[in-house]
Computed example of a mutant assay.
Amino acid sequence: MKSDLVDIAACRHAETESAIKISETGDASKAVWIPKSQCQIENDGHANFVTVTMPEWLAIEKGLV
């Protein structure tokens, strides 16, 4: 059975109560906003480096895959 979730290793540029702004490259000009209601955010102790788990359709829509 294929999962429709993807994990994205990303740099966190900004965060609000309802969304997180991330990029895969660390380039803020290429960062995109992801609604927190559509993802899970994990931080392994590095302030600005996170793993974001989200539906594959959302990652495609935002240009992350």
Results as ranks from 00 to 15, higher is better:
residue 46 H to N: 12
residue 63 G to W: 01
residue 38 Q to K: 15
residue 26 G to K: 04
residue 61 E to Y: 09
residue 25 T to P: 03
residue 40 Q to S: 12
residue 54 M to F: 01
residue 5 L to N: 07
residue 6 V to S: 08
residue 48 N to C: 09
residue 56 E to I: 15
residue 7 D to T: 07
residue 1 M to C: 00
residue 57 W to V: 08
residue 44 D to H: 14
residue 39 C to K: 10
residue 6 V to N: 06
residue 10 A to D: 05
residue 56 E to L: 14
residue 10 A to K: 06
residue 2 K to G: 00
residue 1 M to Q: 06
residue 18 S to K: 14
residue 51 T to E: 05
residue 40 Q to F: 06
residue 57 W to I: 07
residue 56 E to V: 15
residue 17 E to H: 06
residue 19 A to W: 04
residue 26 G to S: 06
residue 57 W to D: 09
residue 8 I to Q: 08
residue 47 A to Y: 09
residue 59 A to T: 06
residue 34 I to D: 08
residue 27 D to L: 07
residue 20 I to S: 05
residue 64 L to D: 08
residue 56 E to Q: 15
residue 37 S to K: 10
residue 16 T to S: 15
residue 54 M to K: 07
residue 12 R to A: 02
residue 13 H to R: 10
residue 19 A to G: 02
residue 63 G to P: 03
residue 59 A to K: 07
residue 12 R to W: 00
residue 28 A to L: 01
residue 9 A to G: 02
residue 17 E to D: 15
residue 14 A to F: 01
residue 7 D to E: 09
residue 63 G to T: 06
residue 30 K to S: 11
residue 17 E to C: 04
residue 42 E to S: 07
residue 24 E to V: 10
residue 61 E to S: 03
residue 11 C to M: 05
residue 59 A to W: 02
residue 40 Q to P: 01
residue 57 W to E: 11
residue 39 C to Y: 07
residue 62 K to N: 01
residue 14 A to S: 14
residue 49 F to E: 14
residue 4 D to L: 04
residue 18 S to M: 04
residue 64 L to C: 05
residue 52 V to R: 05
residue 57 W to C: 03
residue 36 K to G: 12
residue 36 K to Q: 09
residue 6 V to Q: 05
residue 17 E to A: 15
residue 2 K to Q: 08
residue 56 E to W: 12
residue 53 T to N: 05
residue 22 I to A: 01
residue 52 V to K: 05
residue 32 V to R: 08
residue 26 G to D: 08
residue 57 W to Y: 14
residue 38 Q to C: 14
residue 16 T to V: 13
residue 54 M to S: 02
residue 40 Q to E: 12
residue 38 Q to D: 15
residue 50 V to M: 06
residue 21 K to M: 13
residue 32 V to S: 01
residue 24 E to Y: 02
residue 37 S to N: 02
residue 11 C to D: 02
residue 17 E to T: 12
residue 7 D to L: 04
residue 22 I to G: 01
residue 24 E to G: 05
residue 5 L to C: 06
residue 47 A to M: 11
residue 13 H to P: 06
residue 42 E to F: 07
residue 32 V to P: 00
residue 8 I to D: 08
residue 5 L to I: 15
residue 18 S to Q: 14
residue 64 L to P: 02
residue 29 S to I: 09
residue 35 P to F: 08
residue 52 V to L: 08
residue 15 E to Q: 15
residue 4 D to Y: 07
residue 38 Q to Y: 09
residue 53 T to I: 11
residue 53 T to Q: 13
residue 6 V to F: 01
residue 2 K to N: 05
residue 58 L to D: 06
residue 48 N to I: 09
residue 56 E to D: 09
residue 64 L to Y: 03
residue 18 S to V: 11
residue 32 V to H: 03
residue 64 L to A: 05
residue 6 V to R: 04
residue 16 T to R: 11
residue 9 A to F: 00
residue 46 H to Q: 14
residue 29 S to N: 11
residue 57 W to L: 02
residue 10 A to L: 04
residue 58 L to C: 03
residue 61 E to H: 11
residue 40 Q to K: 10
residue 9 A to C: 03
residue 55 P to N: 10
residue 21 K to N: 05
